[in-house]
Design a protein around this nucleic acid. Structure first.
Lengths: 152, 152
DNA sequence: GTCATTCGTAACCACGGCGATTACAGATCG
DNA sequence: CGATCTGTAATCGCCGTGGTTACGAATGAC
């Protein structure tokens, strides 16, 4: 499934926010490493997909480093999540006995359920951008109060 | 954080659904193991917290086994999730440099964000019960379409 | 009472993911 | 040229997950 002890998303959001606060200054992965407290190599590894998606730019060589390639207000956390977690299951699935029809049916239900939960996570993350993290998350209007169940 | 390759939730839902379809019959962990394709010891380990919460009953000895202790329509998947995943972070957090004020601020933002996402997951899972998994998940009314962002 | 069955739980092991670390090639600037 | 910084591969240790074994206790059949 997606993560457990996977810190890529947290590191990515941290770095993006840091860059958003650096106002165009080019920041080395060493400096980013100092703030995130993770290895500079790991920082570059995490930032790779973000660069591929055009969220950040990097420049090698002396006085090189990283900077945002888009407005902080245009980078949703959903985008970051999707780039780093891809389509990994959120809930975690198992591999039921294929010869058991009951098991196979439950498996397809769980897969469907996972899709819905992943969509809920995406929807929540879509509400926030790097700018929000930088300036403080907006007060929640929904998301902490839950709708009633369907099947009740 | 919560899980990555953690299958406890999936196994639990599988077993609860299986028991819900067994209509009061007492089912051994060996039989549950055969359907879920995981070890019977692991089945019992996963079921432990559910028994503690009164969702299932177990009886040792000959002809012993497991049965539901509540109506399948009263067991929400949110309850199962909370019992097994507890308050583990959903997004996965890192440990930023404590001496960096920027880092500490971002950390608190990420913790807040994780709470919201966890609430969104809970809200989605609250819509479904074991009965829903048994009879088929209801058609989604919301959850696959996302609300607009706050901070835009 | 005796024995087979099943849960309860602890102990130990193997596998795999995560992130640190090292190493080295390529790019860039003074 | 030399210093700096990215890009990337290779390797390592740690830890969570789940499998496996083992043994005690509870229950029912006989």
């Amino acid at each position: 499934m997606a993560r457990s002890t996977n810190t890529q998303f947290a590191v990515a959001v941290h770095v993006l926010t840091y860059l958003g606060g650096a106002e165009g200054r080019v920041v080395s992965s060493d400096e980013l490493s100092a703030s995130t407290n993770v290895n500079p190599v790991y920082v570059r590894r995490v930032l790779g997909p973000l660069r591929g998606a055009g969220l950040v730019r990097s420049r090698p060589g002396a006085h090189g480093g990283w900077e945002l390639a888009a407005d902080a207000g245009d980078i949703t956390l959903e985008r970051v999540w999707q780039l780093l977690q891809g389509d990994d299951p959120v809930l975690g699935l198992h591999g039921p006995a294929p010869e058991c029809p009951v098991g196979r049916n439950i498996q397809s239900m769980l897969t469907d359920l996972d899709r819905r939960v992943a969509a809920a996570v995406s929807a929540e993350l879509r509400r926030f951008t790097v700018r929000d993290v930088l300036h403080g998350l907006p007060v929640p209007e929904h998301g902490l109060t839950a709708p009633p169940r369907d099947g009740g």
